[in-house]
C-alpha cells in the first residue's frame, strides 16, 4: 500500500518536473511549428498542387484543413519527432547522472526498477503530448487557412468531422505506440552513460540507421524486426474499413523492444554503482 502510493507520487513528481521544464515546452512548441509552417507555406504558395503531385497528402491540405495534421505527421515522422523524443529518452537516467541528482533520487526508499519504470512512463507521457500537440495544432491551423469539412479517406469514403477527429486521435496514439520501442532503447542507452547528449545522439542514430536498413530491398528479411518498420503505416487508420493488422504487428514489435531493452536497462541500472 505504502509502496504503491510512493510509486504514484514518484510518477506525479516526475511528470511535474518534466512538464514544468522550459525545455519540454520549447520542444512541444517546436513540434506545433511543423503543421503551422507547413500550412502557411501551402497557403502562401501561388500554385495549387494537382492531385497526386508532390509528397503524399500534401495536395489534400488545401481542399480540407483537417488534413494538415496527417500531412504534418507524415513529414515529422522520419526525423523531427524521433529527434525531440530522443532528447527526452536519452535524458532519463543520464540527465540525472549528469546533473549529479541521481544519487539523491536513489536515497529515497524507491527501488531502482521502479525508478526505471517511472522514467520510462514519463517519456511515453511526453510522446503522447507531442503527437497530440502536432495533430491539434494541425487541425487548428488548417481550419484557419483552409475550408473544413468532411474528410475523404484513402478508400474514397467520406467521414464526418467528429469521426475525423476520432481518427486524428487514433493516429496520435498509433505514433505514440510506434515510438515506444525507441524510447526503451533510449532508456537503456541512458543507463550506460552520464553524458545525456551522448545518449540522445545514440538513439537518434539508431532510428536513422533503422530507417535506412528498412529501405534496402536486399535486407527484406530483416525489415519486420526493425522498430521503424511500421512508423508510416499510420495511414492504415485512414482506410475504410480501418486496417488494424499493421497496428497489431506494430504493437507486438514495440512490446518486444520494450521487453528486450527494458531487461537490459534493468540489468545495467540495478547492478551498476551510482557515482554521480
Amino acid at each position: 500500500m505504502f509502496a504503491k502510493s510512493l510509486g504514484l507520487s514518484l510518477m506525479l513528481s516526475e511528470l511535474k518536473v518534466m512538464f514544468t521544464r522550459r525545455r519540454t515546452w520549447a520542444m512541444l512548441f517546436a513540434i506545433a511549428l511543423i503543421p503551422i509552417l507547413l500550412a502557411t507555406a501551402v497557403y502562401l504558395s501561388a500554385d495549387r498542387l494537382a492531385p497526386g503531385e508532390g509528397p503524399p497528402f500534401l495536395d489534400r491540405v488545401t481542399q480540407n484543413g483537417l488534413f494538415t495534421g496527417f500531412t504534418a505527421m507524415l513529414l515529422a515522422m522520419p526525423l523531427f519527432l524521433p529527434l525531440t523524443i530522443s532528447v527526452v529518452a536519452g535524458d532519463t537516467i543520464a540527465g540525472e547522472a549528469g546533473l549529479g541528482t541521481l544519487r539523491y533520487l536513489l536515497i529515497a526508499p524507491v527501488g531502482r526498477a521502479r525508478l526505471l519504470v517511472v522514467k520510462y512512463l514519463g517519456t511515453i507521457a511526453f510522446t503522447l503530448a507531442g503527437t497530440f500537440t502536432l495533430m491539434i495544432a494541425g487541425a487548428i491551423i488548417g481550419a484557419i487557412y483552409f475550408p473544413v469539412g468532411p474528410i475523404t479517406l484513402l478508400s474514397g469514403d467520406v467521414i464526418q468531422i467528429p469521426e475525423a477527429l476520432w481518427r486524428m486521435a487514433l493516429v496520435a496514439l498509433y505514433t505514440t505506440v510506434s515510438m515506444m520501442g525507441m524510447l526503451a532503447l533510449g532508456l537503456f542507452i541512458s543507463t550506460l552513460t552520464t553524458i545525456p547528449v551522448g545518449a540522445m545522439t545514440g538513439v537518434l542514430i539508431a532510428s536513422g540507421v533503422s530507417q535506412i536498413l528498412d529501405n534496402l530491398p536486399q535486407l527484406s528479411w530483416l525489415h519486420e524486426w526493425l522498430f521503424t518498420h511500421y512508423w508510416l503505416d499510420f495511414a492504415d487508420i485512414l482506410r475504410q474499413p480501418m486496417e488494424l493488422s499493421s497496428f497489431g504487428s506494430n504493437l507486438l514489435l514495440q512490446l518486444g523492444y520494450i521487453a528486450f531493452f527494458g531487461a537490459l536497462a534493468y540489468g545495467r541500472f540495478t547492478s551498476k554503482d551510482i557515482l554521480s
Binding site: P51, G52, P56, L74, L154, S155, G156, L232, A235, E243
Partner: peptide, 25 residues
Amino acid sequence: LDPMSQRDLIVNSEEFWIYDAKKAT
C-alpha cells in the same frame, strides 16, 4: 493498400468503380 495511398475496385450488380486515391480519379 499502397503506402500512403490506395486503389479500389468496386463491383456491384449495377455498376463498377475504379478509384485511385493518389490521383483522385
